[in-house]
């Protein structure tokens, strides 16, 4: 199943998530007009959520993202770990097929 969600976060930036999942997550794609340095590390954030249980709580998802951000020295600007987790969870509530 694929679910999609989007959220305009504080500061006006848009964060979108596309999540392919069943009992666990197959892939996550995060898009939007936020900033994150170095840019290619978005893939590390996306990968950290692969394989996670799809019923994991928002707090646990945010925790996983935070650990990835900290361990790779990723700098977020105009987006937060919490917002990424929230939009990923929302995407899984809006499955399309």
């Amino acid at each position: 199943m694929i679910g999609r969600a989007a959220e305009k976060i504080h500061g006006g930036k848009l964060v979108k998530a596309e999540v392919d999942f069943a009992h666990s997550v197959n892939y996550v794609k995060i898009t939007g007009d936020f900033f994150l340095h170095p840019e290619e590390s978005i893939e590390k954030i996306e990968k950290c959520m692969r394989g996670m249980d799809s019923d994991l709580t928002h707090e646990k998802v945010a925790d996983m993202v935070k650990r990835t951000v900290e361990s790779h020295g990723i700098i977020l600007f105009g987006v937060t770990e919490d917002a990424i987790a929230r939009v990923v969870k929302k995407a899984m509530e809006r499955k399309e097929a």
Partner: peptide, 9 residues
Amino acid sequence: IGYFQGMEE
């Protein structure tokens, strides 16, 4: 487009 955006989107 920004690095994190989808071209077709």
